[in-house]
C-alpha cells in the first residue's frame, strides 16, 4: 500500500468522525486539531485507521506525532516492518 493510500484511509476516518468536513479539504501537512478534532477524536481516527490497515502500534508510541503526513509515515513504516499476509 502506498503512502498516498494510507493518507486516504486516514482522511476517510477523519470525515467519518468529525462533523462538517470533506476529504478534499484536508491538507496532510496539518494536524487533525486544525480541523477541530479534540484529543479524543484524534485517538479515534488513529484507532479506526490502524484497524482498517490491519496494523497494531501501541497507542502510547503515537503521542508525539504532529500532523497527518507524519502519522502516515509511521503507519507505512509499521506495514513495511511486518508485511501483512
Amino acid at each position: 500500500m502506498t503512502k498516498q493510500e494510507v493518507i486516504d484511509v486516514i482522511k476517510k476516518n477523519i470525515v467519518e468522525n468529525l462533523d462538517d468536513i470533506k476529504a478534499e479539504d484536508i491538507d496532510p501537512m496539518k494536524s487533525m486539531a486544525d480541523y477541530g478534532a479534540n484529543s479524543l477524536d484524534i485517538i479515534e481516527v488513529v484507532s479506526c485507521t490502524m484497524r482498517e490497515l490491519n496494523i497494531k502500534i501501541p497507542r502510547a508510541e503515537l503521542a508525539d506525532i504532529k500532523n497527518i503526513d507524519q502519522l502516515a509515515d509511521r503507519f507505512v513504516q509499521n506495514m513495511n516492518q511486518s508485511p501483512q499476509a
Partner: peptide, 23 residues
C-alpha cells in the same frame, strides 16, 4: 503518562495518558 513526582507536582502528557488508558 501522568504522575506526581513531588507533593506539589501533578504532571504528565495528556495524549500519552489517553492512549495508555485505551491500550
Amino acid at each position: 503518562d501522568t504522575f506526581r513526582p513531588s507533593a506539589k507536582h501533578e504532571v504528565g502528557n495528556n495524549e500519552v495518558s489517553l492512549y495508555s488508558y485505551l491500550d
